[in-house]
Write a protein that binds this DNA or RNA. Structure first.
Lengths: 345, 345
DNA sequence: CTGTTAGCGCATTCAG
DNA sequence: CTGAATGCGCTAACAG
């Protein structure tokens, strides 16, 4: 019965050795292109490998090696978000360059799940881990607690632990975008964003506030709305702001969900309102509205994080203190030029 | 110097055993919650585990077990595409339910890279692999060649190998959407899509053609454009079609890049043109155009593929022939009701 | 209830 | 140039 599928355990090096009439060690050497093996012997071995359909068992190999396993761990909060999938792609591209593969985990912003995933990765002896941390205390990510496994944080900075991280210039981007609004003469500018407990959100608000301060303006609490997680929440909040007796003439939104919600509200209630927001997004140019966005390259965050991590892996005895890399942002404008503020008395 | 980071190799079971004054085997049992271990002993062991910061070495464990490693391989063509990241999320959610983790690889549609990645995953003794195949010959993915590692294909069917797969209802969705256009009286309907070498693209064209045939219409080659990879190519092609002397009154587009390109062209040249396209996309409702899309759940493709794979893993001796699961599509309409065809003589 | 022996598949070390 | 012995960390299988 030729062609029957072999359901038994795979052939081992010993099987190959027997088949080729050599010692297992010789097989090992032949497969590693050890120059000391005679070409003839190597050929015999390779023929047997072929004949038996042998493949090296990486598990055994990496047990032997004791150390890493050519695997990088990547723990993100929400793969469905294009930001994180782009980030994953960036990490993967650099990992691939170094012959490493990615083990992926999704936390859904659950710190408990994060700890589980990270622990599991350490147990699997991955060489290092990139984490988009979910909680606000990162003590459980200290390499010391993780058998020395190097960790790099992405998108959010460490707190309660001193770790390498790669961030987006949340503050600078928000500052620049908001400054554009103040420069256009706007003096009542609203802010819409997700929970201020998210570090990125807090930073973006800080950039916003700083821009106002630089123009001698104070943040008007009535024009600030936090905790807006999805488009419809943002839309409702924006509509509320725009219906105040003395409504903002411009809005700054802290992420693309909020930007989109704001666009809906503006289109529906006060079309003249100027708008700037964090995050670029597809089709922004086709919505027929005037909009400035803070753009950046999510994949670059992954690339930088992977670079930092691979550095740490390659130089385990390097005691340089934790690094903080910041990925820059740029401003992009879509549609009609920015609306100047209506002149006031 | 307390608090110094331990750079040496991690503590092993033997270390814990010594520390606790028991045999390694007892440690192993205590950690597996073996009921035969005395509570007191277990407590001692756990205390030592804590004291030494011991963690189980999964690599050694899975070498011992000989078989799988609680890892699923996932090989996609392009993580940057939201379709595949959603798919990955679906796979991950099911994997997590079964206590498994994902090893991820990105091929960039390169069949050579695909083979490398799959081989590597097999060498790592993953329990099974989900592949979005890049090439047109999948002989290298037969479990027989892969030491019996089960493989499930996602989004594209096998060719040159008999494998389980999970597909989207490309044909049915396209048929339904195009039928909507013919039902509205359209008789000259254009088609825009990527390369017909992509199976999904070919199927979508087949659905399109079938719908025409069912209305007694023939495909007019002048109104068919393939090979449109990005939005701008699609826009140009759509504009060309719309500027023909006897232009189509409706278009069917085979993916969202093409749909977006078509929207641009239609808006710019012939606003009355009706449009239906494969793939839903965010903001489709905010473009101010009338549009029907074929929607489906990409995560569901991943979930189904993982389900099939985990079934195969759990029942390695089950000889049921390869399954083909099809994820259904639905039609969603945005904007003004579908434009009827202009009356003709 | 706990300990001892043995071996998963591979590669380092030291002999031939 | 090739082989034999040994052990990576863990856990069945069998003592005790």
């Amino acid at each position: 019965m030729p062609g029957r599928v072999r359901k038994q355990s795979s052939p081992t090096m010993t099987d190959v050795a027997k088949h080729a009439g050599v010692a297992p060690m010789t097989v090992s050497r032949a497969l590693q292109d050890d120059p000391r093996v005679l070409p003839a012997t190597r050929a015999k071995v390779l023929a047997s490998v072929e004949a038996l359909g042998y493949r090296l068992n990486e598990v055994a190999r990496s047990l032997r090696a004791g150390q890493s396993s050519d695997l990088l761990g990547l723990v993100v909060t929400n793969l469905a978000n294009p930001f994180y999938s782009q980030l994953a792609l960036g990490v993967d591209s650099l990992a691939a360059e170094h012959g490493m593969k990615l083990v992926l985990g999704n936390t859904g912003e659950d710190p408990g799940r994060e700890k589980e995933l990270v622990d599991d990765l350490v147990s699997r002896r991955v060489s290092g881990i990139i984490v988009v941390p979910a909680g606000s205390d990162h003590a459980h990510l200290r390499p010391a607690v993780l058998d020395g496994t190097p960790v790099v944080l992405a998108a959010r900075p460490p707190s309660g632990a001193d770790l390498d991280c790669v961030l987006v210039d949340d503050f600078g981007g928000s500052l620049a975008a908001t400054s554009l609004l103040t420069a256009a003469g706007h003096r009542r500018i609203g802010f819409l964003g997700p929970s201020p407990n998210l570090w990125t959100s807090a930073e973006r608000f800080r950039g916003f506030s700083t821009a106002l301060a630089e123009s001698g303006l104070a943040v008007d609490e009535r024009h600030v709305r936090f905790g807006l997680r999805d488009i419809s929440a943002a839309e409702r909040a924006a509509a509320e702001l725009l219906q105040l007796p003395d409504p903002p003439t411009a809005l700054f939104t802290a992420n693309n969900r909020n930007t989109i919600g704001a666009i809906r509200a503006i289109t529906g209630t006060r079309p003249g309102t100027a708008l700037a927001g964090f995050d670029d997004f597809e089709l922004a140019d086709m919505l027929g509205v005037s909009l400035t966005v803070v753009a950046y390259d999510p994949a670059e965050v992954g690339v930088q994080a992977a670079r930092l991590l691979i550095d740490r892996i390659s130089h385990p005895d390097d005691d340089t203190p934790p690094q903080r890399t910041v990925v820059p942002t740029t401003l992009t404008h879509y549609g009609q030029p920015l609306q100047p503020a209506p002149s006031q008395t």
